[in-house]
């Protein structure tokens, strides 16, 4: 869809009654580095976690490399809405197509089971045509967590080779050689046979990053990668992320590191209260914030 490698469309996420995301749409182009900022509770981590379906969106669609990862959301497809009984009924009563569609969306009038065969057939065929199994998509989307989440029962090397081997993407020799090469690049070859509990936070996070790289991902998602680190270890992790950016990796980074955003981001998204309040180049968002929420946030962190 329009050249984005990862795209989310009309995303809503409720946790019980709590609305965390209220209609978020955005995309990441191949090679683009997007940094997401926002106060805690603004929904930025939830949005990122929806991208690889660690959270299942309540409404909306997630697309990856032209493939649909979520169920079809009929409200995003006017032609599917037009096939529904609800639409036909309203149309018979008269009115403009656009207005009827807007009304149906606004009032959530579609009911899966009562919309007739034509509607169901369209839903099914669209799903069949575009759907990609979430495990296949995740294998190509790296994710780095705030709390590293290295597998505690495995050595560093086993952490890195587990997924490529289990998914039969590489031979044991290939996977090991690649892992050792990546460890070499971050200067941690000597830790290959250590267990995570013996490593510092900065080492853990750098290994978590190269563990993702062992899957040769097309995009890397970072969920506050430096928030759980001691201050003196933040630098080494950001340094590795910068090298990754320079190497051309497509990245989406949720962070509080304004300096990193300025230096690396092609685009900055500012989230507030479950929506994307601002989007632009770092200088646009940092130097000329338009919304009050962004101005407040920036004055508190800068």
């Amino acid at each position: 869809m329009n050249g984005d490698l990862v795209e989310i469309r009309g995303l809503y996420k409720y946790f019980g009654k709590l609305e965390v995301l209220k209609g978020v749409s955005c995309g990441v182009k191949k090679g683009e580095k997007v940094v997401v900022l926002g106060a805690s509770g603004s929904g930025k981590s939830t949005m990122l976690r929806c991208m690889n379906l660690l959270e299942k969106p309540t409404y909306g669609e997630v697309w990856f490399d032209g493939n649909l990862l979520t169920p079809v959301d009929p409200y995003l497809h006017p032609d599917i809405i037009k096939a529904s009984r609800t639409f036909k009924k309203l149309k018979a009563a008269g009115g403009d197509d656009g207005e009827i569609i807007a009304k149906i969306k606004k009032e959530d009038l579609l009911h899966e089971k009562h919309e007739g065969g034509e509607y169901s057939a369209l839903m099914k065929s669209f799903h069949k045509e575009h759907y990609l199994n979430e495990n296949l998509a995740r294998a190509k989307m790296g994710m780095v967590f705030q709390h590293f989440n290295l597998f505690n029962n495995l050595t560093v090397l086993q952490n890195m080779t587990l997924a490529p081997l289990e998914l039969k993407l590489k031979s044991k020799e290939e996977a090991t050689a690649q892992a050792m090469e990546l460890l070499g690049k971050i200067g941690l070859v000597d830790k290959a046979n250590s267990y995570p509990s013996t490593l510092s936070g900065g080492q853990k996070q750098r290994i978590a990053i190269v563990r993702s790289l062992c899957m040769d991902p097309q995009v890397m998602l970072f969920d506050e990668p430096t928030s759980a680190l001691d201050p003196e270890m933040v630098g080494e992790v950001l340094e590795l992320m910068k090298r990754l950016a320079e190497a051309g990796m497509t990245m989406m980074v949720v962070t509080h590191e304004i300096g990193f955003a300025r230096e690396v981001a092609d685009r900055v998204l500012f989230m507030s209260d479950g929506v994307i309040a601002e989007s632009g180049t770092p200088s646009e968002v940092f130097d000329h914030p338009q919304t009050q929420a962004a101005q407040q946030f920036l004055s508190s962190v800068l």
């Binding site: 660690l54 495990n135 994710m143 967590f145 989440n149 029962n153 495995l154 289990e166």
Partner: peptide, 29 residues
Amino acid sequence: DTGQMEAGRSLGLSWITTMRKVIIPQAIK
């Protein structure tokens, strides 16, 4: 820790594979 399962899933491993290789060995311990 739930993060162990999330890490496994984010690498493309299935729920049951992550259980088998990561969660159960830690649980048994």
